[in-house]
Nucleic acid binder design. Structure first.
Length: 111
DNA sequence: ATTCTGACGTGGG
DNA sequence: CCCCACGCCAGAA
């Protein structure tokens, strides 16, 4: 059995997502790039879609490159994603994360 | 098999 | 800064 590098692309996305520190955020592209699939940023989003099964995947900490909560519509309710972020100290206005550059967590750089 | 779509990213205007 | 068009690639119909 493989350790953790032979899992499906989806599972790898989940692994990285779990590594996102509390109160920090990252982008789909950053994760995709870290996995060596920079051109598959969209797949990361798709993977997140299936992350509903995974309980340890903080999908709310993953946004697009602009720092906008593009996927909030996929969460339960209408502003659950924003609430989760704000509960971590992340300020969100109009689906836009404030100080995005400062809160941005780059797996390639941090790992 | 083919076609469309999408929680994206980049480039040009 | 905003808006538009194209590329990528995996899953769904």
């Amino acid at each position: 059995m493989s350790t953790n590098t032979d899992n499906n692309f989806f599972d790898r996305v989940y692994e990285v997502a779990r590594l996102i520190p509390y109160g920090r955020v990252t982008s789909y592209g950053a994760i995709a790039k870290y996995l060596g699939a920079a051109r598959s940023a969209r797949m990361v989003g798709w993977a997140m879609n299936a992350s509903g099964k995974q309980e340890d995947v903080p999908a709310h900490r993953v946004v697009n490159r602009k720092g906008v909560l593009t996927g909030k519509h996929h969460f339960e309710g209408t502003n659950l994603m924003q609430q989760l972020l704000e509960s971590e100290g992340v300020e969100v206005i109009e689906n836009q994360i404030q100080n995005f550059e400062k809160l941005f967590w780059d797996p390639m750089k941090e790992l």
